[in-house]
Amino acid sequence: MARVTIYSTGNCPICDNTKKLLNKWRIPFDEVRVDMERDKLKEMLDLTNHARSVPQIAVDGKWIGGFTELTEMHMDGELNELVEHQ
């Protein structure tokens, strides 16, 4: 199964909602707290072409966007395909 990474902060309700949805969909993920790991903030900025908001989500190192893009991909059936076949 593909590896999903969520770049988040500790005081982000949208990050919490993203994690809840992934748990509901039974998609395992790793959380990277960019507010606690400054080197990971640079990693997120490099991956996302300097996106400043969280959450930012990557699947196998490929940036897919944030919460809105994640839910759109799920509604279109693209997320399951991407997670299962990457």
Score class of each variant (00 low, 15 high):
M1G: 03
A2V: 07
R3L: 15
V4G: 08
V4A: 05
V4S: 12
T5K: 03
T5Q: 07
I6G: 02
I6K: 01
Y7L: 13
S8D: 03
S8M: 09
G10C: 07
G10M: 03
G10E: 12
N11W: 12
C12E: 03
I14C: 00
I14W: 05
D16E: 09
D16R: 06
T18Y: 09
T18I: 05
K19N: 05
K19T: 02
L21W: 07
L22S: 06
L22F: 02
L22M: 08
N23K: 11
K24G: 04
W25E: 04
R26K: 11
R26F: 05
R26P: 00
I27G: 01
I27W: 06
I27L: 03
P28F: 05
F29D: 00
D30S: 13
R33V: 09
V34C: 10
V34D: 04
V34A: 00
D35S: 08
M36Q: 15
M36F: 02
M36H: 06
D39I: 10
D39H: 13
D39C: 04
D39Y: 12
K40W: 07
L41Y: 05
L41W: 10
K42A: 15
K42N: 14
K42Y: 15
E43K: 08
E43Q: 14
L45K: 14
D46M: 12
L47N: 03
L47D: 01
L47I: 11
N49H: 05
A51R: 10
R52L: 15
S53I: 00
S53M: 08
Q56L: 06
I57L: 08
A58Y: 02
A58D: 06
A58K: 03
V59L: 14
V59R: 04
V59Y: 09
D60W: 10
D60G: 12
G61Y: 10
G61R: 04
K62V: 15
W63D: 01
W63V: 14
I64K: 02
I64Y: 00
I64V: 14
G66L: 01
E69Q: 13
L70K: 05
L70M: 13
T71I: 15
T71Q: 05
T71C: 02
E72Y: 07
E72M: 13
H74F: 11
M75C: 06
D76A: 13
G77C: 03
E78T: 04
E78I: 01
N80I: 15
N80V: 14
L82M: 14
L82A: 02
L82R: 05
L82V: 11
E84K: 07
H85K: 14
H85L: 10
H85M: 07
Q86S: 10
Q86Y: 13
Q86L: 12
